[in-house]
Structures are given as structure tokens and as C-alpha cells.
Design a protein around this nucleic acid. Structure first.
Lengths: 206, 206
DNA sequence: CGAAAAATCTATAGATCTATAGACTGCACG
DNA sequence: CGTGCAGTCTATAGATCTATAGATTTTTCG
């Protein structure tokens, strides 16, 4: 470990986190060896411990990296005073853009974080809960503004949005040549309008 | 291995598959040891090889078990001549019921099947594709019947339904005291109607 | 009961994999 | 030119884990 965490060291460590993210995303945490990560980085297995105290620490760093921006972006979406539809669109866009930019780390966060020790998992969970709560708040305000159907279960709605975005995110990770904006548009349309042709089914129920 | 695959042997093997499913669901394939599985069965590690040629074979059997009924049920839903809404409800119900009944095996199928050798993965993939195609067909017929909005991307819609059901299924696996029927109802409502209050937004676009 | 078959056990070979200790290399800088 | 530190390497201890071989116990059934 370097005395001063120099800029160069920070950048190399970032590369190591990215390498670990790629390997964990492909093979899973327990299916990956430190040798795999080191090889992808072009160094020898033992040298990896210059950047991480343990394999588990590497997993923790990957997970943190994966959702870093994620919550912050949701903070600003929730704070903006756009109408409901625009905020929902922004949420889906932000979520799927995260998948495009740091897809591997985000996938690792979703799939492998439960292998972290309880303590580190807890701080990640708080971030995830905050995200969901902000999204719930957007739905609640949508009801107040008359944009969202009254009676909507906002907790369930938030979970549904997150679940769908993650499912679509997995598609993106698998097929890299998928049109993200097509998914964003169709996904938001589904969340807003559903699939039912509703000329007749027009509820007058405020 | 027994000469004749007796009924008793079959039943014991089924128990072994269930034990493997539970362990794989909790710790992942690579995170589980054959000792873990054997312990849950109440036998010693080496004895497990009386039921499986390898740990990988155990994974294959768990995955197959997980989606066995799954596709067959979709066959009969697709073959029935109910209206679109009823078939969608039946699909969501069937999917989530599978999660309740054999949640661990289905979860393992979703999360760990990629660790199977290519050949076995291929046959599972065919089942998955069949499921999706049947669901696509339901949407297509829904459009023809005027129940589904014209212009709907049925491929995307099928993926969305599957993705949502899996996301909800994960909730069920984690919190066992969740009300499945509540999720089924709210989920189907979302898929049909979306969240937008649409008194005004009534598209006249056949 | 008694023998054959089924089911399980013990012990271990052989192949990992993680983490550490200590040596080596090359760049930065006085 | 030479000293020191950053970064990497080699080698290995120690702890797995899978799969197999052969012994042993339990069940089945004539």
C-alpha cells in the first residue's frame, strides 16, 4: 500500500474494481478466482492484494461503485418539480443509463451483494431503501397532483418499477446491441398506460 | 446406483434435488459445497454421489425441476379460449404460484443455470423461449380481438411480463409472508391499465 | 433366517483457491 | 549517481472442495 493514496494509485485501483466487476458479473463472486481478476488486469494473482485486502473487499468496492451515482441521480429527480410523467421517464432513463454505463458493477450489486458481510450489506441496503422511498414519494405526489390513479399502492408501484428496470437491465447486459431508448420509451408507456385497449374501460373514480 | 430405479429411489432422489435447490438458492452454485447439500439431507458428503454423478448434474436437475410444470401450464393457458384479460391474469397467477410452490428451484433456474454446460443450458433455453413465444401469442391475439392496444410490441410485452413476475417472485422468496394474491391483483392491474390517471388521455386510435 | 441388493459411511487423492512473506524492478528525485 | 518507495513478482502455507474406492450397515424378500 502506498503511503499517500496518490492520484495514480486511485486510478489503478479503479481499474482493478472494473476488472473485478467484469469477472464477478460473468462468473459470480464464488465462481471467480482472484487469479481471474488479476489476469484481466494483466498482473499476477498475488499482486491483486496490493489493491484489496481481500476478495470480499473487492466485491464490496464493486457493489458500492455500482450504485454510487444511482441514488444521487434519483435524489435530483425527486427534487425536481416536473410533472409525474416526466419524472417517471427520467427515473427509467436514469436506471437504464446506469446499466449501460456501469452495467457490470450494477449487475454485481444486484446479484452478489448478499455475499457481503452483514455490516457492509446494511449500508448498501440503506441506499437501496432510500432509492425506493424517493420513488414512492414521486408516486404519492403523482396521486396528489391527479396524474396517478387514486388508490395506487405506491410501495408496490415503486418495487414494480425497480423490478422492471432491473429485468430490462439484464437484457442490456446480455445483448449489448439493444436500443436502450426503445426500451425506455416502451417501458415508460407500459408503466403509464398498460396494455389494455381502454376506449370503454374509462373509470370515473377520483 | 440401484439396478432398477425403484420408486423409493426416485423419491429419495427428489428429496436430494429439493435439498440442493434450497442450498443453491441460498448460497449460489459455486458458493455451495456438496457437504452443505448432504448435511441438509442428513447424510455424509460422499453419499451424495449415490444420487448425482456430479455437483453439476445436481444443478441441472434442480433447474429442470424448477421449470418443469411452468411451461406446460403456459401451454394450457395459451390453448384456452378465454379473453385476453383472463389469460394474462392466469399467466401471472401461474408464474407466481410456481414461485410459491417450488420457489427455490425456480430461483436457481433463473440465477444459476448459466453455470451449466452449454448442452444442458440449450434445452432449458428452448423451454424458456417456448414460454415467451406462447405469451407473445397471447398478446398478438389480444390485439386481434381488440383487447390490447394496437401497435403494442408483443415481444417486448412478453419480456416485460416475465421480468416483472420474476422480480415479484424474488420478493416472495425473500419474504415468505407476502400476500401472493395481492401481488397478482396489483400486478395484473398494472400490466393492463398502468398507473396514469387517464380521464383525459383517451386515445382514439384503432 | 440368510443372502443379495441398496444405501450409507470412511478415508483420501488430487486439484483448487486465498492470503501472506519476502525478493525484485524501475522510476523519481536530490 | 544512488537512495527510497511504489508496484509487481515468486513461492508457499494452509484451508478448502470434488469425486472415487472400498468397507460397512440397513433393507428387502424368498
Amino acid at each position: 500500500m502506498p503511503q499517500t493514496a496518490s492520484h495514480k494509485y486511485q486510478e489503478h485501483r479503479r481499474q482493478a474494481i472494473l476488472a473485478a466487476a467484469a469477472v464477478f458479473a460473468e462468473k459470480g463472486f464464488h465462481g471467480s478466482s482472484t487469479r481471474d481478476i488479476a489476469e484481466r488486469l494483466g498482473i499476477k494473482q498475488g499482486s491483486l492484494y496490493y489493491y484489496f485486502r481481500s476478495k470480499e473487499e473487492a466485491l464490496g468496492e464493486v457493489c458500492r461503485y455500482g450504485i454510487e451515482d444511482y441514488v444521487h441521480r434519483m435524489e435530483s429527480i425527486a427534487a425536481s418539480d416536473q410533472p409525474f410523467e416526466a419524472r417517471l421517464l427520467a427515473t427509467v432513463t436514469s436506471h437504464l443509463s446506469s446499466y449501460r454505463e456501469r452495467n457490470e458493477a450494477l449487475k454485481v450489486h444486484n446479484d452478489e451483494r448478499l455475499y457481503l458481510p452483514a455490516e457492509k450489506r446494511k449500508t448498501l441496503k440503506q441506499l437501496g431503501s432510500r432509492y425506493r422511498q424517493l420513488l414512492e414519494g414521486i408516486f404519492e405526489q403523482g396521486i396528489a397532483d391527479g396524474a396517478v390513479r387514486p388508490g395506487t399502492d405506491c410501495h408496490f408501484a415503486a418495487l414494480a418499477v425497480i423490478g422492471m428496470c432491473n429485468a430490462w437491465g439484464d437484457l442490456i447486459v446480455r445483448d449489448s446491441d439493444i436500443d436502450i431508448f426503445d426500451i425506455i420509451q416502451k417501458g415508460t408507456d407500459l408503466l403509464l398506460n398498460g396494455y389494455s385497449e381502454r376506449r370503454a374501460a374509462n373509470r370515473i373514480n377520483r
